[in-house]
Each structure stands twice: as structure tokens, then as C-alpha cells.
């Protein structure tokens, strides 16, 4: 098998002028370079019998500046199963209703309490939440969109 090169376009924001390479398996070299270096390194490696494989759209999402590439996301069967099975009784919902902000526990029919101010509702949610890995406070806007997750 001829060695080949994957050139991954990357976000300069996180990887400015860094060159990162790793041999993932025999004869396969993944090389991540900034766009300005890609052509130079690419043409150099072609001259040395590498086959270049261009990956058109790799996405970098790691904000902690670790060198990690994330391919485009898919909803896998495992992910769908997780969504289906997740327990929500420890979650607290903060939602606007009739010019008030209501706090409701997961699965509860009625709101725990309503507040005039969003900040008061949030404080109340923080007080009643059970501390666990699976506890979240989810804040919604009037359109039913999630504005914040704690």
C-alpha cells in the first residue's frame, strides 16, 4: 500500500501555524497543517511518492486548544437510544409563562413556583436541584428554545 497524506483544513483560531502529524496506522500519515502550509507540504510529499487525500471539511470544535479533529456529526443509533432512555427526574426547567418565570421539576405536572424575575427563578432552581451528575437546570425562552443549560 502506498502511503498517503490526509490534509485537513483547520481553524487557524485554534491551531495558528501549528503543524501536527501522527501516524495512525501503517503507511498512513495524517498531517494537519494551516492552509498556507498545506500546498507546500503537499507538493513536497507528492514528490516523495505520497498520495494525497484531501479531506474537504473537517471541523475543529475543541476550545481548549487541544489538537483534535471532529468529523461531521451524525445521529447514531446509540445516541438515539441515549436520548430515549435518559432519566429526567433530576432536571429543573425554568420557563416563561404569562409574564412570570416558572420553576418545575422534571416529570412534575405542576410548577414548583413562579417568580416575577428570571434571576429569582434561576436562584430558586439552583437551591432545589439535587446535586448529581445527571442534574441540570434548563432555561427556555418564550419561543420554547433552550437559552441556557447549567
Amino acid at each position: 500500500m502506498r502511503p498517503y497524506l490526509k490534509i485537513l483544513p483547520i481553524s487557524v483560531k485554534y491551531y495558528s501555524q501549528n503543524v501536527y502529524s501522527k501516524v495512525l496506522r501503517e503507511n498512513v500519515l495524517n498531517l494537519i497543517v494551516t492552509s498556507s502550509l498545506a500546498l507546500v507540504t503537499g507538493s513536497f510529499l507528492v514528490r516523495h511518492s505520497y498520495t494525497i487525500k484531501l479531506i474537504p471539511l473537517a471541523t475543529i470544535t475543541n476550545k481548549t486548544n487541544r489538537k483534535r479533529t471532529v468529523q461531521s456529526k451524525h445521529i447514531t443509533a446509540t445516541l438515539a437510544k441515549k436520548i430515549n432512555e435518559i432519566e429526567t427526574q433530576d432536571w429543573i426547567y425554568v420557563t416563561p409563562r404569562d409574564n412570570m418565570w416558572t420553576v418545575r421539576k422534571g416529570g412534575a405536572e405542576r410548577a414548583f413556583r413562579s417568580y416575577k424575575l428570571k434571576v429569582a427563578a434561576l436562584n430558586a432552581a439552583k437551591k432545589i436541584i439535587q446535586p448529581s451528575i445527571n442534574s441540570h437546570i434548563i432555561v427556555f425562552d418564550a419561543q420554547g428554545e433552550i437559552s441556557k443549560v447549567f
Binding site: 470544535t61 471532529v70 456529526k73 445516541l79 441515549k82 436520548i83 435518559i86 429526567t88 432536571w91 426547567y93 420557563t95 418545575r104 422534571g106 441540570h136 434548563i138 427556555f140 420554547g144 428554545e145 433552550i146 443549560v149
Partner: peptide, 20 residues
């Protein structure tokens, strides 16, 4: 409406945990 918000929360939390 409550069910709708709960479903949206499930989706958001699992996908965020998965790296979305």
C-alpha cells in the same frame, strides 16, 4: 407544551454531552 420542552431538553443535553 411541557412534553415538548422536556423532549427538547433531552435532545440538547445528550447531544451536548456527545460533543455537539
Amino acid at each position: 407544551w411541557k412534553k415538548y420542552l422536556e423532549c427538547k431538553a433531552k435532545i440538547e443535553i445528550i447531544l451536548l454531552e456527545d460533543g455537539f
